[in-house]
């Protein structure tokens, strides 16, 4: 059997948790979860979802472009959560390359507008 290509192997992470956050499966592609037993303790983003999972009847949640800091490096991920009977499945897709390009474009565009404004009001830096 020929080798099946897995183009997303390095950018996809699956995390399976119990509703209380206990990690019960997945891989370590983006976040190394070996030293964690509960996902809600890994990052404030995950912690903030805890209540939503308890109070919402939805079974599917999508959070585009979440900024994580992993080993002091920013990482942009699209996060999808699927609620199943007795567990939650998180899919993290690392879109950093694409979002970093967008980030540079947006920064330049916004900076130009802010600089024009600063010039108008005669200040040197307002942020």
């Amino acid at each position: 059997m020929s080798t099946i290509e897995k183009p997303f192997l390095d950018v996809l992470q699956e995390i399976i948790i119990k509703p209380d956050g206990t990690i019960i499966g997945g891989n370590n592609t983006i976040y190394n979860l070996e030293s964690f037993s509960n996902l809600f303790e890994v990052d404030p983003f995950f912690e903030s979802l805890k209540e939503q999972f308890l109070t919402s009847n939805k079974t599917f949640f999508v959070y585009p472009c979440v900024n994580f800091y992993i080993n002091n490096k920013k990482c942009y991920c699209d996060v999808t959560v699927k609620r199943e009977n007795g567990f939650l499945a998180f899919i993290l897709f690392n879109y950093s390359e694409r979002y970093e390009k967008l980030h540079n474009i947006e920064s330049q565009k916004n900076q130009q507008q802010l600089n024009a404004h600063l010039k108008k009001i005669g200040a040197t830096n307002v942020l």
Partner: peptide
């Protein structure tokens, strides 16, 4: 003083 645009969301606590 540096302006850095936020893309998406950053969550802090």
């Amino acid at each position: 003083e540096d302006y850095l645009v936020t893309l998406g969301v950053q969550v802090k606590k």
